[in-house]
Design a protein around this nucleic acid. Structure first.
Length: 724
DNA sequence: CGGATAACTTAGTAGAGGTAAG
DNA sequence: CTTACCTCTACTAAGTTATCCG
């Protein structure tokens, strides 16, 4: 632990040094190229002509584009071919869309499914029943066991109950007397039924859903078709706040058209509101990029309907975000020198600014704005408190706090000695647990400081910069060799470094431990098979061992005891599997019984029994053979065996063992680290594209379909020698 | 100026969907 | 073909930052 962090500290110093060297050398070809790509209009003559043509047929750009693509109906707007006029207050000229999709009306529970109060079934008004249903559906989740969740839910449930006329059968006052299990079972049954639907039926339902949503999926932006993101209005439910959120469990009320504001072009037709309803408001604000909004009732915040991730707006702002992070490269030396010197400033505010900047730069902390007390108590850099850091002389700091999403940030690190001294000062005497470490700071002060060095520079840019920088450095270390699979693993390892830097975590999957054990057993069994084959090879020809000593070395790794253990385990699994299959078949037949004639049933029944018997017998024979082989340490030879054939089989096993081991390693190392977030938000996608091209890895192995769409601009603009 | 708010990005997770193993 | 598992997408909560407003 300590070691990696020491490295981290060193890395910063190193990269400061490196930067210096780089910036002192003469302007490189790369820099020139960068400059050019920023001003495409000053590119070669050919490009200029193309742009002119485009200008002339501005209204027909769509046609022009689709004509030069023969595989798909590619009518995407390639904004990245000209990134000149991306800034500006006005975001669009015209915007047309079909409004938003509302969740279906509440469907009351069947008459026989009821809440039980004090042991008796009670009837609820449908409004209250809906809320009870929200809780019932979650009954087996952790939320339902959380006292805050229960308290908030029950308060709102009672409120809705009162609003809707109360319960005629009982005076519902105590949560502990409520029994939601019948409701839970009902939803559980529905889920099962839905899952068990024949594939045809499922497909049909899906298609119907697609069709009804079609018109909301797209909108017209300046006459071009663009995809809308979250056009579905959030359905009512219970607020699932993360961590110790004071409001978790609160009822999230149904959203009606009356509370929705639409934003569209002045000339755009206003989509008709659902029958019997009116839109809350209509806006024509072309300085923003949302299509609709409403105010949510829990935190009082605003929810927006926006463009989808693959839209030009999102693409452009991603592009700008990463260009800004690359811009930081040019200033980061100066900034680092500045905050290092200010660490010793006689002004307290400057010392705090310098120390906070150090933490943001080195440990990738977030800015850390103030939070209200009706939110979960989480912190970032500026909001760190006395109790969040422990100082261990001479220069060790232990961070232990909850960050965004109540994810724990726990790191024991070595810091710069002056930083250590400063932190000690910030924790000095009158300060006590609960007090702010940086009592003079908030994110806006920090950001003002950053903007002295670079316009638009803010705290979050450091995370983007350091993440992408780390990725570039890691990729540079990967040798260009091996199989595609191995290269992907290497890429993921680099990705993982970034995720660790950003503290991107995930909960360990429930089945993780069992899964690891299973894979380990599988590997063991494959090795067992392999060694057996090698031993058979030797049985066939004893002289081989002398010729290829190394090849046969491993056969001694498998002791008699170990082999017997493996055989025992394998046998057990095999028998389990066969009896399970038998049970399943019987179960299935029971189901079909009604539709079969008695004769057919009998035939099938015996068929199943026969099949089971046969399988059992052959398994038993095999087990017997393996057991005796293990005991005697001598293996049965088949007449078809030849050295070549055995060798081929062994090679195949080797390959499978290698793959499975790789898979296991990946699984272990990724169990608590989430790679997705950094891939999606922090690593410049052009790095991933560069890796794909340079290492000859299909981009599909690195970006999922949605990411390929989101990062289309990067896929089309970066090549094998692109640098962050 | 400072707190509130608007508008945007970043985040983990539930559940759908796909795929390999049996 | 089914099951089990794993990956991906959709969802929406939770951040950051700029700006508004008294």
């Amino acid at each position: 632990m300590t070691e990696t962090v020491v490295k981290k500290e060193k890395k910063v110093v190193d990269s400061i040094k490196k930067r210096k060297i780089k910036s002192e050398t003469s302007p490189t070809k790369k820099m020139k190229k960068e400059k050019d790509s920023k001003k495409p209009s000053k590119n070669g003559a050919k490009k200029e002509i193309k742009d002119e043509v485009k200008e002339e047929f501005k209204d027909e750009v769509k046609d022009d584009d689709s004509s030069n693509s023969d595989d798909e109906n590619d009518d995407t707007f390639k904004w990245w071919e000209n990134t000149d006029d991306m800034d500006g207050e006005v975001k669009w000229e015209n915007l047309e869309h079909n409004g938003v999709l509302f969740p279906p009306e509440y469907e009351p529970l069947p008459k026989n499914v009821k809440l039980y109060y004090d042991g008796k079934p009670v009837t609820l008004p449908k409004e209250a029943e809906e809320v009870a249903g929200f809780f019932g559906a979650l009954l087996e989740s952790d939320h339902a066991k959380n006292p805050t969740f229960q308290k908030n839910f029950f308060r709102d449930f009672k409120e809705v109950l009162q609003e809707s006329g109360g319960c005629p059968d009982a005076d519902i006052q105590e949560f502990s007397k409520c029994d939601f299990s019948k409701i839970f079972q009902h939803f559980d049954k529905l889920r099962e039924e839905k899952k068990a639907l024949p594939p045809k039926e499922k497909k049909k339902i899906k298609e119907e859903k697609e069709a009804s949503e079609e018109k909301y999926k797209f909108c017209l932006l300046n006459g071009r078709k663009e995809q809308v993101g979250n056009f579905r209005i959030e359905p009512p439910g219970l607020f699932r706040g993360r961590g110790a959120h004071p409001k978790t469990g609160t009822l999230k009320r149904r959203v009606y058209p009356e509370s929705i504001t639409l934003n569209l072009g002045k000339d755009a037709p206003i989509p008709p509101p659902p029958a019997g309803h009116q839109w809350g408001d209509i806006k024509h604000d072309n300085t923003v990029t949302w299509l609709a909004m409403w105010k949510e009732n829990i935190m009082g915040s605003v929810k927006y309907v926006r463009f989808s991730q693959n839209s030009s707006f999102k693409g452009m702002s991603d592009f700008k975000k990463f260009e800004k992070a690359r811009e930081l490269k040019k200033h980061v030396d100066k900034i680092r020198n500045d905050y290092r010197s200010k660490l010793k400033s006689s002004l307290m505010i400057d010392r705090q600014i310098a120390t906070a900047t150090y933490l943001i730069d080195v440990f990738a902390l977030r800015a850390g704005g103030e939070k209200r007390d009706d939110e979960a108590d989480t912190v970032g850099c500026c909001s760190l408190r006395f109790e969040h850091i422990f100082l261990k002389p001479p220069s060790t700091v232990i961070f232990d706090f909850l960050g965004k999403d109540s994810i724990r940030f726990y790191q024991e690190v070595q810091v710069d000695t002056q930083v250590f001294k400063n932190l000690k000062i910030f924790k000095k005497d009158p300060k006590k647990p609960g007090d702010d470490l940086f009592d003079r700071l908030d994110p806006s002060i920090l950001n003002k400081y950053f903007q002295e060095f670079m316009p638009g520079l803010t705290a979050k840019v450091f995370r983007t910069y350091n993440a992408s920088k780390t990725m570039q450095d890691q990729i540079d270390l990967i040798p260009n060799e091996g199989t595609v699979n191995e290269k992907v693993v290497a890429f993921n390892a680099a990705n993982r470094e970034v995720a660790i830097l950003c503290n991107h975590q995930r909960t360990i999957p429930k089945a993780h431990q069992a899964g690891v054990q299973k894979i380990n057993e599988k590997i063991e069994e494959m090795i067992w098979q392999k060694i057996k084959l090698k031993r058979i090879m030797l049985q066939l020809d004893k002289t081989m061992k002398k010729k290829e000593l190394e090849y046969f070395e491993e056969i001694d790794d498998l002791t008699k005891e170990k082999e017997m253990e493996i055989v025992e385990r394998w046998s057990q699994k095999e028998l389990d599997r066969i009896s399970k299959k038998f049970e399943k078949d019987k179960e299935k037949l029971k189901f079909e019984k009604k539709e079969l004639s008695p004769e057919d049933y009998k035939v099938k029944s015996t068929e199943i029994k026969e099949d089971h018997k046969k399988k059992l017998e052959s398994a038993k024979a095999l087990i017997k053979q393996y057991k005796s082989e293990a005991k005697k340490q001598k293996y049965e030879e088949k007449s078809t065996y030849t050295a070549e054939k055995l060798k081929a089989q062994i090679d195949k096993l080797e390959e499978r063992i290698k793959n499975t081991s790789l898979q296991l390693k990946d699984k272990e190392e990724n169990s608590t680290v989430s790679l997705g977030t950094s891939k999606m938000n922090y690593i410049d996608p052009r790095l991933t594209v560069m890796f794909a091209k340079k290492f000859n890895v299909p981009i599909e192995k690195l970006f999922t379909k949605t990411l390929r769409e989101k990062f289309a601009w990067a896929i089309e603009s970066a090549d094998a020698d692109w640098k962050f």
